[in-house]
Write a protein that binds this DNA or RNA. Sequence first.
DNA 1: GAGAGCGTAA
DNA 2: TAGACTACGCTCTC
Length: 907
Amino acid sequence: MQIGISDQSSLMYALQKLEFLFRFEQPKIKLKINSNTYKDATSVPNNVIKKENITTPSDTNANKTSIFQHSKHNNESNTDTSTKQNDEEKLIVAAQNDVKAGLVPRAARLEFSNTDPYELVAIPKRDAVSGKFGKGDFNFLKLKKDHSSRPLWICPGSAHIILEAFSPIADQAIDFLIAISEPVSRPLNVHEYKLTPYSLYAAVSVGLETKDILDVLNRLSKVPIPDDVVAAINQCTVSYGKVKQVLKHNRYFVESTHPDILQRLLKDPIISGCRIVDSSSDTNKSQGKNGLLTFSAPKPDELSIAGKQVNQMNVDISVDISNQNDESSNKLENQFNVDLQQQVNDDNIDDPEEDDVYAFEVAPNQVETVKKRCNELDYPMLEEYDFRNDTINPNLNMDLKPITTIRPYQEKSLSKMFGNGRARSGIIVLPCGAGKTLVGITAACTIKKSILCLCTSAVSVYQWKQQFLQWTTIKEHQIAVFTSDQKEKFSGDAGIVISTFSMVANTRKRSYEAQKMMDFLHQREWGLLLLDEVHVVPANMFRRVVTTIAAHTKLGLTATLVREDDKIDDLNFLIGPKLYEANWIDLAIKGHIATVQCAEVWCDMTPEFYREYLKEQNRKRLLLYVMNPRKFQICQYLIWYHQNRGDKIIVFVDNVYALKAYAQKLKLPYIYGGTSQQERLRILHQFQHNPMLNTIFLSKVGDTSIDLPEATCLIQVSSHYGSRRQEAQRLGRILRAKRRQDIGFNAYFYSLVSKDTMEMFYSTKRQQFLVDQGYSFKVITQLEAMEDFEELVFKDKQSQIDLLHTVLLANESDSRLENEDTNADENSTTTGEQSGQKARAKKHASTIQSLSGADNMAYMEYNNGISSRSKLTGIDVRKGRGPILPTGKGTSNSEERHPLFKKHFNK
DNA sequence: GAGAGCGTAA
DNA sequence: TAGACTACGCTCTC
């Protein structure tokens, strides 16, 4: 295999793509990069290379130059006249010729033919990430003597941690790393994690102390922990997680084991202004030193989580190793296991400081103010709810049914939540189909107070209700549903209300019933606020729910803790730290969710379509690449192929026009936003129970608000830009499928991409989340058997051209239709209501734009072509997003931050 | 039960 | 850096 590379961004891309290949095929090949040869390509960890800043593990001493140094070197001195250089230059020239020949879009992807899948050709892209490479050469870090038995590399400067996931003690290390750091990428053999202020905040919040983190990290690391990383850990853990907001006997306390920190906070005028100086005295507490209240600390293992088999409540950085078979590694594992566990136990039991906690009381109506101020002072408050001592709020008589048991990872995530006998607020991340709902329900059954549960759609509201009834002993009258068409209240003192975000967050005028219901929600104190699909909470409207609802604990659940904007970090302070995150592949391997075979199918554009594509503007382009007859055929073929295998198939087409066209052409039912509720249910029922109907077409409705039956195959024809979340959510639709475990892979995920179009750019971006979770996408460029398939649609040229005309006409008739609408609107709307006028004006404007003829201007076309081309070629030129400052944090504070993190913050 | 209005995703 | 765009959801009103 040869890779021709002229600049570093190509190199990075090539290596990323290579890694997909390796995971899929595990070829025994030689990977030759510049002058360094790695003996076995599979041993070159993707992440190590990708992140440019450490040397390859295998040859730290043998080879003094890292590949990145080398590539930087090449970049700087083109006068180097070694033969290797010449070879490379030849490749560059060849690549440049390709660019001249107009093959640039193709160059956006690495290509490999069917005959030789390992021949890769990378073609130069613009020099967008120059300077990123070659900065880090960590040869100076001394390897520990016994480094081979330790699984971690820690990079100075970026605080990235590389884990050898094939190490015998990887499982323990993973548990620990998940607790202290943010997973960046977790493919099969090498994982990459990143320490961030938030991740350390989360670590502290589940009970780890600075000492634990540094000790364990040091024990697992092949190199000594770099000084700047130590400093950063110290700095973050020194203030984070030390202060807690506790609601006790319906009084709010700011609590800490460190009295000096409370004193420091009280020096702040805002906080001290919110303080209630103790009036009554109580047997339960005493006026301790410094005028602070003193309580005895909660004992860690008094509480058992509902549904849990064994009562083991330690902060869980050790895992059960009983099912490991490898004899030789067992001893080592045990040693680490004991050490890790010991580490944490020591702190929980022997530290005398832990026996007492100090607190001061704040006025209930000032809690938000104090919380905000604490964030600003860099002492974010954790929220904890001592629910067992809450005598004011009535208990809810509810339990898990005896037959309900929870899985180990669910238990683990809950043990983070209830680790110290109280309920902590935070976020639990589990893949779709892994039982998020049950985690939420178990948490509810543990707290046993009134529960408010919020979902994104009315459909999932009813699902939650049904799940509550299924898993717990709760009575029907104790659950109330609050949606636009059903406004119930529960009877009795305590109960469950399930509603939607938009229902509760609504700021517009409410109907009388809805207002009464909202009053009901506001008056109450909720033991637990369950937030399903918590990644939507940072949205402007939705984020208000967390402050308007008086809840003692907030538990956020999601499968995809990503957003394409930068608001995801806000969750740390809106809800709480991320308590647990499961790895998708890991759960698949353990059999909890389905194993999925992912493939990206490249569909050639027919010449006619491509010609039009190059001419058209954005909107029509989309339609052209979606309606590409080749794609049509491939879709048809895949459906046919999988139907014959007995699969249930869901086809996603985002564009409604295309959705209808596809479904009607292939004579299959489809559901989109306009489909009535009854029709939806009818189609879904048929799909589920009728063996003759094995395929349905869905638009974006399928992403969130449909209770989809089990499917085993998923074909994505078109999608919304580069949404990682959408891709992941769609994949999640087939993770429940487990009944075909006898076959090697039991679920299939195809993404159809029209070659050489914008779609390829988006597709790569979309896959990123899943790739980070360890999924690999196989690229299929040809379906050989397809040509023999007789019923193939659009087989002859004429029908393809007809289709093209229909598509082009569809566009025009669409805009004509819009125009007519506008006219009709103008004629009919005679009463001059203000809002109506506004709306009309807006609509009018858009119509003018699309009819103005700008679409057809030659120069526009040309410009557009250029810009989209550079988009295509410049994969990953966007700068990465670093963590964002917590809300309300002043710039002065960020300057005090450790430089290692400041760098990220200032991005 | 349709449609206006607004919000969300990106 | 904001913006381009489309589809869809929910709620309310009539």
